[in-house]
């Protein structure tokens, strides 16, 4: 009598068993629901479901302060979205500078800025823009104190039904508050200005990921960046040419630099003044 063999079946590989990570493998999914836009950063794409930003739905970006590289992070997405459709910026904290955006390859003709007076108007505008067929993206800076979870749900639904990517820029303190966004990212500045550290707090098809470091220069190359080495060479020649004349200027005051182009240097300034006023104006 032969011993009864148990069949060697990997239960976890059974096709009837659905696991969360199956979302990553694009099988068993409606592909139109998970159309993605490449983020332009290979490492970030690797961690996102489908290999990029969701093309529809709400994404929370949590920042300790404005200006740490949040726009450079989304520049590749902006480039793609503005090609054939509009992107609306609702209550941006500063002026989106047309010249700079254009230099980075964003079609600035397709950017609209909306200013609202109240939180209700902000949400109403965000929802309307999400539902409009002409908008592919909405960038909104909502009032954090008044924003509640129901409203994030509503924007998320509007963005899904309107096939729009909605981005909420919120302070880092919102990390503890629930949000029904598809994806939540917390951004942190690093010691290098060209690098940005980010945590994925919430994503589809996976656990949170911490401490991803992106090189922002990877995706935000402007013609200026490309030509910088040439500029430096040119500046060197100019310096040499102007060397004699420069020596004669003995009355150059402290801190005033000769306007030669793009000489790289770094030093610390030392004056005593209260903290930066403009830096606190975001939140």
């Amino acid at each position: 009598m032969s011993a009864e063999k148990t069949p060697d079946i990997d239960v976890l590989a059974h096709p009837m068993l659905w696991r969360g990570k199956d979302l990553l493998s694009n099988t068993g999914l409606n592909p139109s629901q998970h159309a993605v836009l490449t983020s332009g950063y290979a490492e970030l794409d690797h961690h996102l479901l489908g290999g990029g930003w969701p093309q529809q739905g709400l994404v929370d970006l949590l920042l300790p302060q404005a200006g740490i590289g949040e726009l450079r992070l989304i520049l590749p997405v902006l480039q793609q979205l503005t090609q054939n459709a509009y992107v609306v910026w609702i209550n941006p904290p500063f002026i989106p500078y047309e010249t700079a955006l254009g230099a980075c390859g964003v079609n600035t003709h397709n950017i609209l800025v909306v200013r609202t007076q109240s939180h209700e108007d902000t949400l109403w505008s965000t929802e309307r823009c999400c539902l409009s067929s002409g908008c592919a993206g909405v960038l909104a800076w909502p009032e954090e104190r008044k924003l509640n979870i129901k409203e994030t749900r509503r924007i998320q639904l509007a963005a899904r039904s309107g096939r729009t990517l909605a981005l909420f820029f919120r302070p880092i303190s919102a990390i503890a508050r629930s949000s029904l966004a598809e994806l939540r990212l917390a951004l942190r500045p690093t010691h290098s200005v060209d690098r940005l550290s980010l945590d994925i707090i919430k994503r589809k098809g996976g656990w949170p990921v911490h401490d991803i470091e992106l090189c922002l220069a990877e995706a935000s190359q402007t013609p200026y960046d490309v030509m910088q080495s040439l500029h430096q060479q040119l500046a060197l020649w100019q310096k040499q040419g102007a060397h004699a004349a420069q020596r004669e200027k003995t009355t150059v005051q402290k801190g005033a630099q000769e306007p030669t182009v793009y000489a790289d240097f770094a030093y610390d300034m030392s004056t005593s003044e209260p903290d930066m006023a403009a830096n606190n104006s975001l939140h």
Partner: peptide, 15 residues
């Protein structure tokens, strides 16, 4: 050129 531009330049301590 910066992506964010201020409506008015803001004074900032050099340190």
């Amino acid at each position: 050129r910066p992506l964010w531009l201020f409506h008015q330049p803001q004074p900032v301590p050099g340190k």
